[in-house]
Amino acid sequence: MSKTKIIFMGTPDFATVSLEALYENNYDIKLVITQGDKKRGRGKKLQYPSVKQEALDLGLEVYQPKDINSKESIEKLKNISPDFIVVVAFGQILKKEILDIPKYKCINVHASLLPKFRGAAPINHAIFNDEKETGVTIMEMEEGLDTGDMISKSSIPILHEDDYISLHNKLAKLGADLLIKTIKNIKENNYKSIAQDDSLSSYASMIYKSTGKINWNNKGKDIINLIRGLVPWPVAHTSYKDINFKIYNATIVDKISDDVPGKIVKVSEEGIFINTCDSTLIIKELQFPNKKRMSVENYLRGNNIEVGIKLE
């Protein structure tokens, strides 16, 4: 019996876990398609997307088209004649001509419980919105943005201690496991597609550096969720005496001062206490420019933070 032929499309770390699962489960991965290499870091060195590096490590063929919908790309995919096209955080919209290529389906692994949080940043937005659970949905792809019929779902709770990194890693594994089960069920015709209810949909917009700017007039819990949702990038940030610094970890307590939001009301080894509109936020871990990420306790050993300064 011939192996199931797969074309895999994906780009970031999240997608590598699904690619590994397909490889480990003995699927015939004919081609791995990913976005182009990008210059990153201070030295602006050209770096491979995570999926490209993983594919090369596994000895798989990699293809990086500028436009997946170009005539050349479509011909390349048709010549493979795949059973499935699997898409995990690829980053380009597929036209119907591609969606119609596979023998079975073109399926997408999406990191939310659709129709909630369609779009580019579902994990971040689940944390921002203080969701109590999230999960992964595998859908049959159509030309709309994350609007296809749902084939399978799996959910997990969002724990109080979860940040973007921990939730990303859990969902990547959850999605990979669900992908393997779903492909098997589709081949055996043991599934039922469910249309999404568009009236329940929400959109998870892209994350930018500016997303991390803290508004101290917001509720403390909302600021905490912003901090949790933006580690490791771009990281929530604010300004002290016109110096922008990043906040990696914080907690909230009942308001200890009637001062205005953003005002530093206390500084101790426990942290930097900042007023919000309804509570006091305690910064526990931070990073100033040209310094390492560190606890406030360690930072205060060689630096001074003044009570009474208003963060902007």
Rank of each mutant, 00 (worst) to 15 (best):
K95A: 09
K266R: 14
I186W: 10
A89E: 09
I29G: 00
I183M: 00
L46D: 05
E306K: 12
G308D: 13
N290A: 10
I107S: 01
V86F: 02
M141G: 14
V267K: 03
K310E: 14
L77N: 12
L311V: 09
M294F: 04
T11F: 06
I256D: 13
P289Y: 03
S18L: 10
T211C: 13
P12L: 09
S2C: 05
V62K: 06
L226S: 00
M141V: 08
S70W: 09
S154H: 05
T134W: 10
L230P: 04
N69I: 11
W233D: 09
E133P: 06
P49Q: 04
N169D: 14
S155T: 11
T34H: 08
L230H: 10
S154Y: 00
L99C: 07
M206D: 08
G262F: 10
L56N: 08
Y191E: 09
S202Y: 10
I283K: 06
K76T: 15
T11H: 06
S257P: 05
P49F: 13
I214Y: 06
P232Q: 03
E143V: 15
D149A: 08
I98A: 01
G212M: 01
V307N: 12
K153S: 05
C277P: 00
N108L: 08
N290R: 13
T238Q: 01
V87R: 01
Y23E: 04
N189Q: 13
E72S: 14
Y191H: 01
I93G: 00
Y208A: 06
N185S: 15
K292F: 11
K44L: 15
S2P: 14
L178N: 05
K263M: 14
A120L: 12
V231L: 01
E20L: 13
P122M: 10
